[in-house]
Simulated assay, not measured.
Amino acid sequence: MAAARPVKLAANGIWKLFAADGAALDRLGPDPDDAALERAGLVAGVADASLAIGEGEIFVIMGLSGSGKSTLVRCLSRLIEPTRGQVLLDGQDLTRASPAELIRLRRHKMGMVFQNFALLPHLTVLGNVAFPLEVQGVARAERTRRAREMIALVGLSGREHDLPHQLSGGQQQRVGIARSLAVGPDLWFLDEPFSALDPLIRREMQNEFLRLQAGLKKTIVFITHDFDEAIRLADRIAIMRGGRIIQTGTPEELVLHPADSYVAEFTREAPRARILTARAIMRPLDERIEVAGAVDAGAKVQAIAAKVEAAPIPHLVTEGDRPVGLIDRSAVLAVLLGREMVR
């Protein structure tokens, strides 16, 4: 996340206990570990989770089934109540918001898309997309106009009068996305929205998602258990295990500097050529060495591999107009061969 990007959503020390209240947690002190929880017979869906998500960032939360990722997102949106901790949206503490204020925030500032499309079967595409605007009390002409805009945005123009059962799975998910965008949310929660789709449609929906984000620049919290999907979409990733956030970082940071063996195993088969940049594998600058050309420091190895590998001498690595290092065919081949050996 860029340093200048303001924080849109923050969580400070979020806990969610099942079948217990805050008093049970308070008796264990400010930061109980897993052993203390087990001795007390407490089950934590989320344990002491803190994060800060920047405005316009795609922030992916991932982990295996039961890791707590969906529970954390429901705490962030206050669909369920955290046992302890603070959630801040634009500086407003959601844990102190009244039910009426939460309804207002969800209607006007939050969009949500889940794995289950949850379309209303008796409503057309247009009716489904316009439904949240109807709930807001928006006049018919205005909600129809906005719904048509969103339908066009997700590429379903011409299907406005179809019912959900007349659509493919991918088209139904597009309707769900259009519906969530109709209210113009600042913050968009997506909980494994593509996991029920077959691989080809899933890839298509990922492309559609990136296309939408390029224009809309929403702040997005996206849940997945698929690391390949995460690295395609994420600015940063938080990896969870047992209700705790183990590490947060860019895909490159997670691959190069895993916090522990769990993260290392999670990223072991990651396609490094698609993740690592020239900056990550360059060697120190030496002005005495002749170069074949220049590559951008932020370019992915996959994008520059053919160019660098074909040259008998190194390429200069630059940030803007400033030279910062050198990259040669051996460094590129090490990444490519390493990826193949993992497979």
Rank of each mutant, 00 (worst) to 15 (best):
D328C: 09
H165V: 11
E55V: 01
M112K: 10
A44V: 02
V332P: 00
L79A: 02
L181W: 13
E290V: 10
S98Y: 14
E160M: 04
A311R: 12
I223P: 00
L88Q: 08
S157K: 10
P6D: 04
G176L: 10
A334P: 08
S70E: 01
L212Q: 01
K109Y: 12
A299P: 04
D296C: 06
R202L: 08
P314N: 08
G242C: 02
K109P: 00
T318E: 02
A270S: 14
E290C: 06
I220G: 05
L123F: 12
E160P: 11
Q247I: 03
R106V: 09
D260Q: 05
L163A: 13
L28N: 02
T267G: 08
D21W: 03
L200I: 15
R146K: 14
L76C: 04
C75N: 04
V125N: 02
A152I: 02
E309I: 15
T267W: 06
T224C: 03
I246Y: 05
E192M: 07
A49I: 01
R203D: 13
I14C: 07
G298H: 14
I177T: 04
D296Y: 09
I80R: 00
G56T: 06
L42Q: 07
M150P: 09
E252D: 04
L163R: 14
E57S: 07
S50K: 01
L17M: 11
A178N: 06
L76E: 04
L9N: 02
A10K: 01
A214Q: 14
H315K: 05
R84F: 02
L94A: 11
V154C: 08
E319I: 04
D31Q: 12
E101C: 14
I237S: 02
L285E: 06
N207M: 11
D191H: 04
L285N: 06
L17Q: 10
